[in-house]
Design a protein around this nucleic acid. Structure first.
Length: 422
DNA sequence: TCTGGGGTCCTAGGACCC
DNA sequence: TCTGGGGTCCTAGGACCC
């Protein structure tokens, strides 16, 4: 598992994590310098009744505002704060610009999220004039600041885990590098809940055993950990606590799923009117997911519908089709059938979501289409309850509406079922 | 303090096949 | 059939991250 660090002869890796300081806040200020740019107390997130904070300025954080907090609570804690929505497109653009800058400086760049990037600089010392990792990190920080105007913090170490925790130590606008061999010492200061991958549920289990900090965990006999948490989890926990992590930094992999979801301003009650309303919302979500799917030249085999009840319990139903699909029509038919299944429970609905997974590229999916033809010809009988497969009319309709939207804007076509569709 | 929206990964059970 | 075991796919739920 952790052979990387232990293998003799292999030099320690040089890993950096670049993390943007209050990313959404910085971008909101760039987008609106006169308004958001002048508000020290700034909160970015969903406004309206049920929104939460996506990011808060450091000044607002000093008043106890945290991301994930309901917006109403944030404004109670910091009444003088200005609340603005997330500038989605500007954030995507800023993220892309940061990545492009990093790619000129590091051979391997992995985007861990919209505002976090891992760099593996192992073996590149000569490129940076033999400078220590810490000096290189400062140079990268300045380069990103200059190219994009975004302030970042960098953590460094011999692996991703240590780099990540070090970046937290570096914030804001700083650099913190843990030298090789000092990982265990560095880790000793952290509570277990600070370890990436240890969330509230794990913390509760650990605290039930009296374990709160890294040294406390390491003092426990490994056999006990195995008995309590199972072999896999126990080994994972001990490695984390010791600051060991052999996960490589890899350039970005393909997307595995695409989804969209919506929390309603008011819960949608059970009954025919609510069902009709939900089907309308479903079609909107299908439209946006479908458009993303086609823009990326992908098709999907599995459709998932998710519902959150008024009491916040969440249920999902999914179905995997014989052949991958790309059209709103085919996705919507399956999604509607799944939604009908979920609505059997007859509870008020707070949230509705649609996702597609089992993604394949258009060309890979042609082979599967041939299988479908076999199925239709009777070699393999299709499941009787399966919705009609995607027709060429479905595809043409979706590509046509993509075209119209591209030319005349998002409002050019309203989601609605076409006459004659089931 | 009533809790967004976009993802990834893991687990566990059942179906199905050899 | 008093019936084993492993591999793979699918589904539902949950933990976690930003």
């Amino acid at each position: 598992m952790n052979s990387q660090e232990k293998t003799p002869g292999r030099p320690p890796r040089s890993i950096l994590l670049l993390d943007c300081d209050a990313f959404f806040v910085q971008v909101a200020r760039q987008v609106d310098p006169e308004g958001a740019g002048r508000a020290p107390y700034l909160v970015v997130g969903g406004r309206g009744g049920r929104g939460v904070v996506t990011s808060a300025s450091y000044e607002a954080r000093a008043h106890g505002v945290r991301s994930g907090m309901p917006m109403a609570e944030a404004l109670r804690r910091c009444p003088e704060a200005l609340a603005v929505p997330v500038p989605r497109e500007a954030c995507t653009g800023a993220s892309r610009a940061i990545r492009e800058t990093l790619e000129t400086l590091s051979p391997v760049v992995e985007a861990a999220s919209i505002d976090e990037f891992y760099l593996d600089l192992t073996g590149t010392e000569r490129l940076f004039g033999g400078a220590p990792l810490e000096v290189t990190a400062h140079r990268i920080r300045e380069a990103v600041q200059k190219a994009t105007g975004i302030s970042t913090s960098l953590g460094g170490g011999t692996n991703r885990l240590v780099a990540k925790l070090a970046a937290g130590r570096a914030k804001p606008a700083g650099v913190h590098v843990v030298p090789p061999g000092r990982e265990a010492e560095f880790m000793a200061a952290f509570p277990l809940g600070a370890l990436p991958g240890v969330g509230p549920a794990q913390v509760a289990l650990l605290e039930a055993r009296g374990l709160h900090s890294v040294p406390e965990l390491l003092a426990v006999e490994p056999e006990w950990l195995i008995r309590w948490f199972g072999a896999r989890r126990a080994e994972w926990l001990r490695n984390r606590a010791m600051g060991l992590d052999s996960t490589p930094v890899t350039p970005d992999e393909d997307r595995k799923s695409i989804s969209g979801e919506r929390t309603f301003a008011a819960d949608i009650p059970p009954g025919p009117e609510g069902d009709a309303e939900l089907e309308g919302r479903l079609l909107e979500l299908v439209g946006s997911v479908g458009a993303t799917l086609r823009r990326q030249r992908l098709r999907a085999r599995t459709i998932t519908v998710k519902i959150r009840d008024a009491d916040f319990t969440t249920h999902q139903r999914s179905r995997t089709l014989e052949a991958p699909v790309e059209s709103d029509g085919a996705i919507d038919r399956t999604a509607r059938s799944l939604l009908g299944d979920l609505r059997q429970r007859r509870r008020p609905t707070r949230l509705l979501g649609v996702g597609v997974s089992g993604l394949v590229t258009e060309d890979t999916s042609e082979a599967v289409q041939l299988d479908l033809l076999d199925a239709l010809e009777g070699t393999v009988p299709p499941r009787p309850e399966a919705p009609a497969p995607e027709s060429s009319r479905d595809r043409t309709l979706s590509r046509l509406s993509d075209d119209l939207r591209a030319r005349f804007g998002e409002g050019a076509i309203r989601p609605g079922r076409i006459l004659g569709d089931p």
